[in-house]
Design a binder for these strands. Structure first.
Lengths: 207, 207
DNA sequence: ACTACTTGCAACATCGGTGTTGCATGTCAT
DNA sequence: ATGACATGCAACACCGATGTTGCAAGTAGT
């Protein structure tokens, strides 16, 4: 309704002043940082975290919803990018799997809140991107299956969900700027081999 | 402060009328049902879902917090029970692992909201129970490791977190009253074997 | 039947968060 | 230096949720 809301909706209306754009960035980053540990944080808290007044936040984002949507869209785009640059459709399955994992972990450790929110719907663009990524993931798994990397008898969607869960878990660990490559190795290793010992007499003895 | 709050705090103060106790049950179950899909549900919504007036809910539970705590405690106790009856310290590791998984899944599919909430702190009893269960879990894994069921070189805490994540994922699937045993089989299988094909020439070919 | 308890309903006070506005001050761009 | 824009601050209206109370009607237990 108001002038600000218009500004939020059509983003590149007119060139913003240099400092203003910086402020927007600052607000978004601070919001992510705070919301990651407290999803119910107040606009006041977000503003303080960004070092600005609450009214300033409202000048850039008409509503709280608008702010969250901006975050969501941003994260979704980074997500798609992380997956895309790993060439999941072209590279050899194992290589692609590893690359995708590492890239996504890098994004997810810094944008955990926005990423999780993107998983829900509400934001159409984010929902679309997520659906596409999911499809890409299953597709990659199918290729892996055909290459003999994944067992032929497994449920690909269950596998995908497990994969997502592993990444989610690894992302928690690496929240403090951990090594994405090391985490990716662990994730892929766990996904492929699990935690059990190779089948043999030993397992029989355990029962 | 008020009479109701006292009643909530010391539960078995005096024998409640038969129907009253039934009402409390109904409210808790309805609350779980609603909160599972909408954690921010209103007291009004919870009341309507239970088929009672909002004021009635407030008569049984002084505050929204009190209601949630009751749910949390309940779920935590059921959780501890589910783990305990599987004899995780005595039964053979693989058997115990399967039993624990199936039991926990049965509880978690019906009390997903309260269980997740119990994972956070706030409720001291729930926090204690969860810590104990975690310890039990690691202990079980250690036994499994010694029995040769789990590889000797893995990180037990990472394995536990993966295990939790798998259960969480399986619980989503079985929300509509799925077969806990079947899900447990899948969870244990995934945890032990992962999704990869047994090592061999094939994997080399994939790179 | 009688009492004690519980319920629904309507109304109320309160509180915290959101979104808005006006104004004085400050900063950017030219 | 000057005009345009951004900011902080204070104040305000508004809304929805929470928690409380009084009362009339209904139900459990004896």
């Amino acid at each position: 309704m108001t002038a600000q809301k218009q500004q939020t909706e059509q983003q590149a209306k007119r060139p913003l002043r240099a400092d203003t754009e910086r402020t927007v960035q600052t607000i978004l980053e601070a919001a992510e940082r705070v919301l990651a540990t407290n999803p119910a944080a107040t606009m006041e808290q977000l503003a303080r975290a960004a070092g600005v007044a609450r009214t300033t936040v409202h000048r850039r984002f008409a509503t709280r919803e608008a702010l969250l949507d901006e975050l969501t869209g941003w994260a979704a785009r980074q997500f798609a990018d992380a997956v895309g640059t790993a060439r999941p459709d072209a590279a050899p399955p194992l290589v692609a799997l590893y690359q995708v994992t590492a890239n996504v972990l890098r994004v997810k450790t810094d944008w955990s809140f926005a990423m999780n929110r993107a998983a829900e719907d509400a934001h159409p663009e984010a929902a679309r991107i997520h659906a596409e990524v999911r499809a890409t993931c299953v597709q990659l798994f199918r290729r892996a299956q055909e290459a003999g990397v994944l067992r032929p008898d497994i449920d690909l969607d269950w596998t995908r969900r497990v994969y997502y869960a592993l990444i989610h878990e690894a992302a928690k660990e690496g929240a403090g700027g951990g090594d994405a490559d090391a985490l990716a190795t662990r994730v892929v290793d766990t996904l492929l081999r699990g935690a059990g010992a190779p089948a043999g007499l030993v397992r029989q003895a355990a029962i």
